[in-house]
Design a protein around this nucleic acid. Structure first.
Length: 266
DNA sequence: GACCATGTTCCTAC
DNA sequence: GGTAGGAACATGGT
């Protein structure tokens, strides 16, 4: 699941816990902790209060405070969801899922980090510096970046447009599904060189990116509607929702790619 | 068993 | 140095 719209959904889930005190942290699988042991992680967060979470690209950042309304401070929990991660608010008596790797326990419920494949995980940032260092590796958030900076950053590279869009250091937040969806809306072939796009085409991609993300955020994930390209990914013989041409499948930048050969010509 | 999967990082080759 | 391709990571679905 997790691309920008999904992580924005998880941010809203994390908001449930704001001002609540962490009673305990149960680490069921320490493999998802990237830079701390289960003990360090749990000890650092126990009795801290959750402060306002923020999102940048596919990263969710949760600061803590020493009192319910206290100012956001270290330690922070930085969450990445890989390909299969999620965050959910659960009642205490809800049965533990086999993929619930870390549970944050509060008086009236719990926050669960669930992840099947464990490709990424949770970071404990003990100082503001560590949060900044993580953010430094990311480009501007896909929802925040303006048209001019968007164009400027993407024309700096000689790569193809799809892998460039998905490069988190250029623009943060877009994954495989979002990239395909945006390029289909903009009628741009995913294998075209980024430097080959005109200024008008970049304007279109930027606008389509924003509207696509806003619509997806409303439902907290990338929808699988029939009117969206993404809604046809898993079909054996998918057709373009716009012109009914048989869709093409291939690999671009090492990722499975779906596009319409009629709407998105080379 | 083979192949595929919404992500990231590391290695090699051109 | 930039770019592309492949493998690795860990797990499950078809």
């Amino acid at each position: 699941m997790p691309e920008l719209p999904d992580v924005e959904g998880f941010r809203r889930v994390a908001e449930e816990a704001v001002k609540r005190q962490v009673r305990a942290v149960h680490v069921h699988d320490a493999q998802v902790l990237r830079d701390s042991s289960a003990e360090e992680f749990a000890d650092a967060l126990r009795r801290r209060y959750v402060a306002e979470p923020s999102r940048h690209g596919k990263w969710l950042m949760v600061p803590t405070a020493s009192s319910a309304g206290g100012s956001p401070a270290a330690p922070w929990v930085l969450l990445h969801f890989g390909m299969t991660g999620s965050l959910r608010w659960c009642e205490h008596d809800a049965e533990l899922h086999p993929h619930d790797r870390v549970v944050f326990d509060f008086a009236d419920g719990e926050l669960r980090y669930r992840d099947m494949r464990k490709l990424t995980g949770l970071h404990l940032a003990r100082e503001q510096d560590e949060v900044d260092r993580q953010l430094d590796e990311l480009g501007p958030d896909a929802l925040e970046v303006g048209r001019d900076e968007f164009t400027e950053r993407l024309t700096r590279t000689r790569r193809r447009i799809k892998p460039a869009l998905m490069d988190q250091s250029i623009i943060a937040g877009l994954g495989n599904l979002c990239a395909d969806e945006i390029l289909w809306r903009s009628r741009i072939n995913p294998a075209r060189a980024a430097t080959d796009l005109t200024s008008g085409e970049f304007g279109r991609v930027h606008g389509d990116m924003r509207s696509m993300l806003r619509q997806a955020i409303r439902v907290g994930r990338v929808p699988d509607r029939a009117s969206w390209l993404t809604g046809h990914r898993d079909e054996p013989d998918p057709h373009c929702p716009r012109c009914s041409t048989a869709l093409s499948r291939g690999r671009v930048g090492g990722r499975s790619t779906l596009w319409c050969p009629h709407c998105q010509p080379e």
